[in-house]
Amino acid sequence: MEFSPFNNVVKLCLQGMSMEEKGEPEEAKKLFLQAWNEATNDLEKFLSAHYVARHQQTVTDKLKWLEASLDHALKINDDTVKSAFPALYLNIAQCYEELSQPEKAKENAELAKQYKEHPSDKGPFYHGTKADLKVGDLLSPGGNSNYKSEFIMNHIYFTGLVNGAGFAAALAKGDARERVYIVEPTGSFENDPNLTDKKFPGNPTRSYRSAEPLKIVGEAKEWVRQSEEDIQKFREKLENSKGEIIN
């Protein structure tokens, strides 16, 4: 089950977040509820319930929606959503604290800590680019950002989603063929702070970074390619973004 920004329910959640940024919470709430009502699987239910929760007027109602989000997340059992467990359990703990249920609050806070300190993703991992490389080559930090060319990146980035790596390859600068390489980190790595717990809970795109090189161990030949229209829209969005890169 793979997270995609082109999924219809995800698009509704993005529209809801846009309404929040514009100071229109009622419109945002309507969009999040629409996303919940249109959700057809546990990933979509998990995401939409998360956003409905933050527009509730009482702690009890917020807790109900957070626990609904958690219930669907637990059914998925993959790394796409496990990265969201620390924040989700912590939010539930805060609700129990406000409801004067300290034992429940402590239980959920401990679960949040457990999941934060023990990331579960074991790969395989992928890196998308237009560079022509071979097995055994090392991909090292120090290149220019694909998104803000003036930035020299202190980390090398990769993902656990082959389609995400394919999309990164499509966005990469140059006219060469898009390549998705299977990579192994040669050192420690962390969740990409530019994406984790930002718009979406956790690290649903399984995006990571390392200050150590990645070793190419193979090349993926198949992934879902987005339309040129979607790629161009996303490229324009990146170019117009005023957000700062955490480097």
Rank of each mutant, 00 (worst) to 15 (best):
F3K: 01
V9K: 05
K11T: 10
G16C: 03
G16H: 11
M17R: 10
S18Y: 09
S18Q: 09
M19Q: 14
K22F: 00
K22Y: 02
E27Y: 11
E27Q: 11
A28Q: 07
K29E: 13
L33E: 14
L33C: 03
Q34G: 03
A39R: 00
E44F: 01
S48I: 06
S48C: 04
S48W: 08
V59E: 07
K62T: 15
L63V: 09
W65H: 14
L66V: 06
L70Q: 14
D71W: 06
D71E: 13
H72L: 04
L74V: 02
N77Q: 15
D78P: 03
F85Y: 15
F85M: 14
F85W: 08
L88W: 01
Y89E: 04
E97K: 15
E97Y: 08
P102A: 01
K106M: 11
E107G: 02
L111G: 00
A112D: 10
K113L: 14
Y115G: 03
H118I: 11
D121M: 07
D121I: 06
K122F: 01
P124W: 01
K130A: 04
A131G: 10
L133P: 03
L138E: 13
P141E: 11
G143P: 00
N144R: 15
N144E: 12
I152M: 03
I152N: 05
M153I: 05
H155I: 02
Y157S: 09
Y157H: 09
G160L: 07
A170R: 08
A170T: 04
A170G: 01
L171S: 04
R179K: 13
Y181L: 06
E184Q: 15
G187K: 09
F189A: 08
E190S: 13
N191S: 04
N194D: 12
P201T: 00
P201R: 01
T205G: 06
R206P: 02
S207K: 05
S210Y: 00
I216G: 09
A220C: 11
V224N: 09
Q226P: 00
S227G: 09
F234K: 12
F234M: 12
L238K: 08
K242C: 05
